[in-house]
């Protein structure tokens, strides 16, 4: 005779809910600042209401996953919300695993006369709930990935302005790490802007780039070469001492590129190329006064 865990557990629903919530509350990892007690209770009760009627002997014995779809859906919703709220994976997984513990405990207390049946039933329930754990974990990670993708997009949007700082001189301050995708965007923006403004000098300021490795250097060289192909000159500025050190240690040859330490000196160099002079009004008299 097999054990009808659906009926048995449904009878004990109140008890399961209480011990489940208690065990969740007892866990150190539970973050009371992120989820309220009431919300937790509502979530858990809804899940139990959906899950318990489905645990018929037939469903449990067959181990067919598709009959538990409503539960999976509910769990997915919970996982996504938790991912967005910033729960840790441990907290999220514990939600399901604590339920397993409680259910198995109750089963053990109720079924005292049939060790063989108890073992088999426990084994099957175990398998089903483990399936839920995998689902909740998968969805949780998917949720986190969505968050990361959104942030990446946002960063890409704000990161590449091309500034016209003088007639014929463009500046492009780069902030953050340069990867291939960003270099592509930076390069396209810069080249479009060169055509649009007819500028002949572009200054690439890398003071906001945290580190330059051989890949980043290669991206920089690519951008400079592309600018040169367009018929404009490219100056790299904002090279910090640490970056100069790394570049030389890595054996990257930047000798074909004009490099300046600050944006100001790059601008000065640009003025020289364009044969422009910037001076204070009345600067003419200075040598006179000095004498």
């Amino acid at each position: 005779m097999s054990i009808d865990s659906a009926r048995l557990l449904q009878k004990k629903k109140k008890q399961i809910l209480e011990s489940w919530i208690n065990s969740q509350l007892a866990e150190d990892a539970l973050r009371e600042d992120m989820i309220s007690n009431d919300e937790l209770r509502a979530n858990s009760e809804e899940l139990l209401d959906t899950l318990l009627p489905l645990l018929t002997p037939k469903n449990v014995a067959e181990g067919d996953v598709s009959v538990f779809d409503p539960v999976t859906e509910l769990l997915s919703g919970i996982a996504i919300t938790r991912a967005k709220q910033g729960f840790t994976p441990r907290e999220t997984a514990f939600y399901v695993f604590s339920l397993k513990e409680v259910v198995l405990n109750i089963l053990q207390n109720e079924v005292t006369d049939d060790p063989q049946g108890l073992y088999e039933e426990s084994f099957r329930l175990n398998k089903i709930i483990d399936g839920f754990a995998v689902t909740i974990f998968e969805t949780f990670i998917k949720g986190r990935e969505e968050v990361i993708l959104r942030q990446t997009d946002e960063i890409a949007e704000i990161s590449t302005p091309v500034i016209r700082i003088w007639d014929g001189i463009l500046a492009l301050p780069i902030i953050g790490t340069l990867d291939s995708a960003r270099t592509q965007v930076v390069m396209e923006n810069l080249l479009e802007e060169i055509v649009a403004t007819g500028s002949s000098i572009a200054i690439l300021d890398i003071s906001g780039v945290p580190a330059v490795d051989s890949l980043v250097a290669q991206h920089l060289i690519k951008t400079v070469s592309a600018t040169r192909l367009m018929g404009a000159e490219c100056i790299i500025s904002g090279i910090r001492p640490e970056i100069a050190q790394t570049v030389v240690h890595l054996g990257i040859d930047l000798s074909s590129i004009i490099t300046k330490s600050t944006l100001a000196s790059a601008l000065k160099h640009a003025f020289q190329i364009l044969k422009l002079e910037v001076k204070k009004p009345g600067a003419k008299e200075r040598p006179f006064i000095n004498k």
């Binding site: 592509q184 390069m187 396209e188 080249l191 070469s225 592309a226 192909l229 404009a232």
Partner: peptide, 23 residues
């Protein structure tokens, strides 16, 4: 040279050293 063409040449590894360029 158009921007797209410049990018293509660079990606192909042809920086055309020795050729002068102008806008």
């Amino acid at each position: 040279m158009q921007p797209a063409v410049a990018i293509t040449l660079i990606e192909l590894g042809l920086p055309l050293t020795g050729v002068h360029t102008a806008l």
